[in-house]
C-alpha cells in the first residue's frame, strides 16, 4: 500500500512539475493544481497511513494522526485561493498583453517566434 501511495505522489509531482514548466498560463495552473495534490498527499502521509482509523474520539482504538489532517485541511482551501489567484492573474495578463505566455511577453513576440 505504502509503495503505491508513494508512487502516486511521485507521479503527481512529476506531472505537476512538467506542466508548471510550460509556457502558457493555463497548463501552468493545471500543473500547480497537480502539484498541490501531491503536496497535500505528501503532508497528509507524514502522519503515516491508517485504514479504518477513527476520525472521532471514542469510536475505535486506532486513531489516524489528526495534526497533519488539520494542516492539510486549511492547505486545501488556501491552495484553491492560490490557484484562483494565479489563474485570474494569467487572465489579466492576457487581457493586458494580448497573449497568455507566462513570461509576460508583448503581443507581437509569439508571432515572431513562429517564423
Amino acid at each position: 500500500m505504502e509503495a503505491i501511495f508513494a508512487f502516486s505522489v511521485g507521479l503527481l509531482t512529476a506531472a505537476g512539475v512538467f506542466l508548471s514548466l510550460r509556457g502558457r498560463s493555463f497548463p501552468v495552473v493545471v500543473g500547480i493544481t497537480l502539484l498541490s495534490y501531491a503536496v497535500n498527499l505528501f503532508l497528509f502521509s507524514s502522519g503515516r497511513l491508517t485504514i479504518n482509523g477513527a476520525a472521532v474520539l471514542g469510536t475505535s482504538e486506532v486513531y489516524a494522526d489528526p495534526v497533519p489532517q488539520a494542516l492539510v485541511l486549511t492547505a486545501i482551501v488556501i491552495g484553491f485561493a492560490m490557484t484562483a489567484f494565479v489563474l485570474i492573474l494569467g487572465m489579466r495578463s492576457r487581457a493586458d498583453l494580448g497573449n497568455d505566455h507566462v513570461d509576460g511577453r508583448l503581443a507581437v513576440e509569439p508571432e515572431e517566434k513562429k517564423k
Partner: peptide
C-alpha cells in the same frame, strides 16, 4: 523538462516512501 520532472518525481516519491515506512513518534 521531462527528465527534470521525472527525476524530481522519483526523488519526491522516494522521500515519501522512506518517510511513511518509518515509525512515527508524533505529538498527536
Amino acid at each position: 523538462d521531462l527528465s527534470l520532472a521525472g527525476i524530481i518525481g522519483g526523488v519526491i516519491g522516494t522521500i515519501n516512501y522512506a518517510m511513511i515506512t518509518r515509525p512515527l513518534d508524533s505529538l498527536s
